[in-house]
Design a protein around this nucleic acid. Structure first.
Lengths: 141, 141
DNA sequence: TTGGGTGCAAATCATTTGCAATTAT
DNA sequence: ATAATTGCAAATGATTTGCACCCAA
């Protein structure tokens, strides 16, 4: 029973190495992010973080998320409708399926699509800096 | 030299068939949309429409764009950063390359990618309602 | 004539920021 | 000690909406 998760440690380390102070409220958010297996938005993260450290403000949630994004520890997604949603960065790159009925997010990964994207860009004289592929889907009946 | 473009007529017809009044300000916006070969945002469209009909307000631009979107005559895109950008619906479906340096938008189309998307969704028990594929690119040096 | 459409200004919503007080280092 | 960080409230930016007047059908 270790106290902190692997991910939390990694994120704390990221803060330290960037010379950024490890505050109570940041640790709370870090823990919440590490535990989340969904893709919560800022308000939801704020809600969860307050359960750990009641003094966290929404402003600090936003500020910390920006820092963590710059440090590459979290990814910000701007899915259709509503505000941005976040997830901790994990090893393998992936894209998303969004259930249009439930809002649920499923991750998937396709080398083939990835390759095709680069091929298309190359043919037009471009190189892909980053991309965004979202499949808005409905469960098959 | 016909007075109105094909597209403007089509859009005017769309309004009429939806039982929606064809007003001065809507005609102005329709013309501007038909002429646009880029992907302007609401403010830019408002600017251009004012050149044709100075009484158009930004509120009406937004309201009309929503109507046209519902009628399927224009498409709304939420690219990274800034507000929504619009284009008149054209025959073939396509995705977008965005030049990260200039903001320019290039359209492309790939049946292969399209197929792969549906395949992936199907394997996970979903069917694709709509999707979004954007390649943020830089010109190759 | 008359209900839909318009401009304007105020209201939303998500996010950011200024500032004085707090706190990690 | 002291500069980074915080909470709060006010500011932003994009978009929407309430309302009294206006005009397309």
């Amino acid at each position: 029973m270790a106290g902190e998760s692997d991910r939390t440690e990694k994120m704390t380390a990221a803060l330290r190495s960037a010379g950024i102070r490890v505050t109570r409220q940041r640790v709370a958010l870090l823990g919440v992010l590490a535990d989340a297996d969904d893709h919560p938005d800022a308000v939801e993260l704020h809600e969860r973080a307050k359960g750990v450290e009641p003094t966290v403000s929404l402003a600090t949630v936003y500020r910390t998320l920006s820092v963590l994004e710059q440090e590459g520890v979290v990814h910000r997604h701007a899915f259709d409708g509503g505000g941005a949603r976040f997830e901790t960065t994990h090893e393998e790159h992936h894209d998303h399926i969004l259930d249009v009925d439930t809002g649920e997010v499923i991750e998937f990964q396709s080398d083939k699509i990835e390759q095709l994207q680069e091929e298309i860009a190359r043919e037009l004289g471009y190189e892909v800096v980053h991309h965004r592929l979202e499949l808005y889907c409905r469960k098959k009946s």
